[in-house]
């Protein structure tokens, strides 16, 4: 237990810089986040919140700087290795829940196991769905779920591979207050349970009431 609760920096960035073109470039402050911790990154639109999140996820390559996730500098990884690393160590939750529409709720979670290169284990996926309260919907299509259920499903999908880092992009922006706090607490709770570093980028100021650590982009 001691081992698991030991706090280490799961995520650390240094001198991160990204430019789309000569007019649009971002210099990001160094950030770090330990396991079981949560970090809120706020800022109004156009400040590079999504860009930062995509950099952290390895979807974009920084112009310069380093990103260490679980002691691996992902900026040095080659395309296929990076895809693989992302699947195994990074979970993502988006503002609007998108799924593979033709697959069932359960298969969407199993898909995440499969794509990360792990063995498919529908029992494990089902346990996770159970803990998030959507197990009874497992055979439905994601589009048949309510928005709250969809958001819980996307959290299940993001966590199924026990990621080192959970990245959430505006996870609560489209939710009402009640659902907003429910999802925020759920994320926090799951981050602790899965020993994951949670990073949320948002302009939703309601979340500041829940998460203590926050960085504002300007």
């Amino acid at each position: 237990m001691d081992e698991a609760n030991k706090q280490v920096n799961m995520l650390q960035t240094k001198n991160l810089h990204f430019s789309y073109n000569t007019d649009t470039s971002f210099q990001f402050p160094d950030i770090s986040c330990a396991n079981s911790d949560a970090l809120l990154i706020t800022g109004s639109s156009g400040k590079g919140k999504t860009t930062l999140l995509h950099l952290l996820a390895g979807i974009l390559k920084p112009t310069s700087g380093n990103i260490n996730i679980n002691d691996t500098d992902i900026t040095t990884l080659k395309a296929n290795k990076l895809d693989h690393y992302r699947g195994q160590h990074i979970g993502m939750v988006f503002q609007q829940s998108h799924f593979v529409a033709s697959l069932s709720v359960l298969d969407n979670v199993v898909l995440a196991q499969y794509l990360s290169g792990r063995k498919r284990n529908s029992k494990e996926a089902l346990v996770l769905l159970e803990s998030l309260g959507v197990a009874s919907q497992k055979n439905k299509k994601p589009s048949q779920l309510s928005i709250g259920q969809q958001q819980r499903l996307s959290i299940a999908r993001a966590l199924v591979n026990n990621p080192a880092v959970l990245l959430a992009d505006e996870p609560t922006s489209s939710l009402d207050d009640e659902n907003c706090f429910a999802v925020a607490r759920l994320l926090q709770q799951q981050a602790v349970q899965f020993n994951t570093a949670l990073v949320i980028v948002t302009h939703d100021s309601r979340l500041k009431q829940i998460f203590k650590q926050s960085i504002a982009l300007s």
């Binding site: 996820a57 979807i59 395309a79 296929n80 895809d83 693989h84 690393y85 992302r86 699947g87 195994q88 990074i90 993502m92 998108h98 799924f99 593979v100 529409a101 898909l111 995440a112 794509l115 990360s116 290169g117 999908r157 591979n161």
Partner: peptide, 16 residues
Amino acid sequence: KYELALMRTMGGSRAR
């Protein structure tokens, strides 16, 4: 398109 992008974030490679 979005589904494909999503699968990439879950670790799916371009080739896949």
